[in-house]
């Protein structure tokens, strides 16, 4: 499921919904990480009457609103797996790609390249196998984990009759033991996604400079263009 670059022709890789999803997702993640951190470790107290202030309330509101945006865009993105082009499928099809030896070959090849043991990596139109693996195991599974644990915690506030509680809290909290453990793991999940973001941003910038095709502009205009 990884397509290598064949000629020197530009390829239309990321369709508009994928690009829009990417940037909305990125923004939502920033909002979620910052507000989430301040929910766990609140800012210094605000002075005055409680009725005149709603700081943590607003922070929590931003967190929950961004979480809904994050979730809904991921659902739309999953729809696009079926409606979009073959590149829209790549990061979701990793378990199936893992059955093919050629995919593993590409993964090892890319790993050797990043370990400076190989001078050139193969060029891919969409994601290379290593990137696919990172997208699947770090971004996708990490996001799903955050959505499930996040809604489980949210459902505690909306109460036992709510769909959030029935769909998530009712089984997630007993699974982890108690609410406190879900909080801890949700918090660790944030750091997991931050780790992903550090690696992702670094690799993208690095490849944009050193590879033979465009990388960052591809997520803006959709085209993978071989550099002159």
């Amino acid at each position: 499921m990884a397509t290598e670059m064949t000629g020197r022709e530009p390829v239309y890789v990321w369709e508009a919904p994928v690009r829009l999803w990417h940037w909305v997702m990125a923004l939502a993640m920033v909002v979620l990480a910052v507000t989430g951190y301040f929910i766990a470790s609140p800012l210094p107290s605000t002075p005055g009457e409680a009725s005149d202030n709603y700081l943590l309330g607003y922070i929590r509101f931003a967190h929950f609103a961004a979480a809904y945006v994050f979730t809904i865009f991921l659902l739309v993105r999953i729809y696009w797996v079926f409606a979009g082009n073959k590149f829209a499928r790549e990061i979701f099809a990793v378990p199936r790609s893992m059955l093919k030896p050629s995919w593993w070959g590409g993964l090892i090849d890319q790993g050797l390249y990043y370990a400076f043991l190989k001078k050139e990596a193969r060029s891919y139109q969409g994601h290379n196998p290593l990137a696919q693996a990172a997208m699947f195991f770090m971004y996708l599974l990490g996001s799903l984990f955050m959505i499930v644990t996040g809604f489980a915690l949210y459902g505690e506030g909306t109460g036992m009759g709510s769909w959030q509680y029935k769909l998530f809290s009712s089984w997630v909290i007993p699974l982890f033991g108690q609410s406190q453990d879900v909080h801890t793991w949700h918090h660790l999940g944030m750091w997991y996604l931050i780790l992903f973001t550090i690696i992702h941003v670094y690799i993208v910038v690095r490849e944009d400079i050193s590879s033979r095709e465009t990388v960052i502009s591809t997520m803006v205009n959709g085209w993978r263009v071989p550099k002159p």
Binding site: P42, T46, S51, L55
Partner: peptide
């Protein structure tokens, strides 16, 4: 209400 207002015992 103090939680929502961001008012905490430090």
């Amino acid at each position: 209400p103090h939680f929502d207002a961001g008012q905490f015992v430090e």
